[in-house]
C-alpha cells in the first residue's frame, strides 16, 4: 500500500480549504529506462473527497498530473471539527484513503 497522504483542511469563514499531498509515482508511460524499454504508465486515475462521509468531489486524472500530486479544493459549509476524507485509485487498482479534521 502506498504511503499516507498529507491532508490539511483549514476553516475559512463558512468554507474549508483542503490541501492534499499524495505520494505516488505518476509514471506517464512516455519515459524509457536505461535499457530503452518503455516504463509502463502508473498513475492515479480517480480521486474522491467526502465531508463527514458524504461525497463532495470526484476528479479524474490523466498522466499529466505531477509526481506526488498536490491538489487544493474548497468545501462549502464545512466547519472546524468536520471530517474530510480523500481517496484515490490508480490504474493498477491500488487505492488509499486518508482522513483529516477541519481545523
Amino acid at each position: 500500500m502506498a504511503d499516507p497522504m498529507r491532508i490539511r483542511a483549514q476553516a475559512q469563514g463558512d468554507k474549508a480549504v483542503v490541501r492534499v499531498l499524495m505520494s505516488h509515482e505518476m509514471e506517464t508511460g512516455q519515459r524509457k529506462d536505461s535499457a530503452g524499454k518503455t516504463i509502463p504508465a502508473w498513475f492515479i486515475q480517480e480521486v474522491t473527497a467526502s465531508l463527514n462521509g458524504s461525497p463532495v468531489l470526484t476528479a479524474q486524472w490523466g498522466t499529466a498530473v505531477s509526481k506526488n500530486p498536490f491538489m487544493q479544493f474548497t468545501i462549502r459549509g464545512a466547519k472546524a471539527g468536520d471530517k474530510v476524507s480523500v481517496s484515490w485509485v490508480d490504474n493498477r487498482g491500488d487505492k488509499r484513503t486518508d482522513e483529516a479534521t477541519v481545523a
Partner: peptide, 14 residues
C-alpha cells in the same frame, strides 16, 4: 463540481 464544492482547484501538472 458538486454543490458542496467551490469551482476552484489548484494542482501541479507536467
Amino acid at each position: 463540481v458538486s454543490d458542496a464544492i467551490e469551482p476552484q482547484f489548484a494542482t501541479r501538472v507536467k
